[in-house]
């Protein structure tokens, strides 16, 4: 059995999702070969994998892998992995993993299971469980032929303790093949936002926010605890928030430790996107709002009054800790 874990990094900084997958493999008694792609300065990321228990890290190196491309990553990975007869290949269900894994699977003539919340390694294959319908239900998936290729949702599996292993590092000159779709520019929206799918805490707003300006209330609250700000479909469709903030069936599916729903009634398609949050708080004027049926803590009240107080209380907490 050969299990490969494609680790992800941003400018050499390892993504937590990679450690989550690694820890889960080790808990199941499997030592995966970790793969990093890039161009130089990946020793720190490899060391971090070692600290979490990885004994072998392969670095696929090429100048063209310094920035992400679906073709470059899929070609480099296939070039290496097709010589290893892998039985399991996993990666994080990030914007990168979701982008290159379908291509890599097609190259292997294999199937793919995306965004899994559980995996079980057994013998020469794996079975996974993944939410469908944005979490309204889930399915088990098994692989009938080819390597079992799947991506794992960040923030679901626990990171294990420090193992302090020094991994064996193998550097391989990658073959990136032909890259036709190339990044020519990176546009930043200015404010540095916490990514919704990786956030530990999300403060989310609905149509009751009444305007895009009023979302500042939520950003102020979120910034105290390093939270991301989300929005309901109603708020996005009303133009109060951009689509990349939408949580729900036609937006992002999230599972933070804490989800604070402000002025969100709890439509079925919104609940689908956030129901796996560990703790849900609802703040809503309407005591009959369906969100209260799902919330661990409910505040019946006007968000315009409650949220500023909440921000103050969180500031006090931070000041005292």
């Amino acid at each position: 059995m050969s299990t490969y874990l494609i680790a992800e990094h941003k400018d050499g900084q390892l993504k937590k999702a990679s450690l989550e997958m690694l820890s889960e493999c080790l808990r199941q008694g499997t030592q995966p070969t970790c793969i990093l792609l890039g161009h130089g300065a990946l020793e720190a990321a490899a060391g971090e994998l070692g600290k979490a228990g990885a004994s072998k890290v392969v670095i696929l190196e090429h100048a063209e892998l310094a920035s992400y491309s679906s073709e470059g990553f899929a070609n480099a990975l296939y070039g290496y992995l097709s010589k290893q007869s892998p039985s399991v290949i996993m990666a994080g269900a990030s914007w990168q993993g979701k982008d290159y894994l379908p291509r890599l699977s097609a190259k292997f003539n294999a199937g793919l299971a995306s965004d899994c919340t559980e995996f079980k390694l057994s013998g020469n294959s794996a079975t996974v469980r993944r939410p469908v319908f944005a979490g309204k239900c889930s399915q088990a998936v098994s692989f009938s032929s080819g390597p079992a290729i799947f991506s794992v949702r960040p923030n679901v599996l626990a990171v294990g303790g420090d193992q302090s292993t020094t991994p064996q590092i193998e550097k391989v000159a990658a073959d990136v093949g032909q890259i036709r779709a190339k990044v020519t520019e990176v546009l930043s929206s200015g404010q540095k936002k916490v990514d919704l799918t990786e956030a530990d805490i999300i403060v989310s707003g609905g149509r009751s926010l009444k305007s895009a300006d009023n979302f500042k209330l939520l950003f102020d609250c979120a910034s105290v605890v390093g939270a991301a700000v989300g929005a309901s479909r109603a708020a996005v469709d009303a133009g109060y928030a951009p689509h990349d903030m939408q949580v729900g069936q036609t937006g992002k599916t999230v599972s933070p430790k804490l989800y604070v729903a402000c002025g969100i009634s709890g439509a079925i398609q919104h609940l689908a996107g956030m129901r796996t949050s560990k703790v849900i708080v609802a703040i809503n004027k309407d005591p009959e709002a369906p969100i209260f049926q799902k919330a661990d803590y409910g505040i019946v009240g006007d968000l315009f009054e409650v949220v500023p107080h909440l921000t103050e209380e969180l500031k006090k907490l931070k000041a005292n800790s």
């Binding site: 914007w95 929206s189 936002k193």
Partner: peptide, 13 residues
């Protein structure tokens, strides 16, 4: 869209 409010501009034939 990528993460955290960043966008990539991509060109391809």
């Amino acid at each position: 869209e990528v993460e955290g409010g960043t966008r990539f501009v991509l060109q391809m034939p």
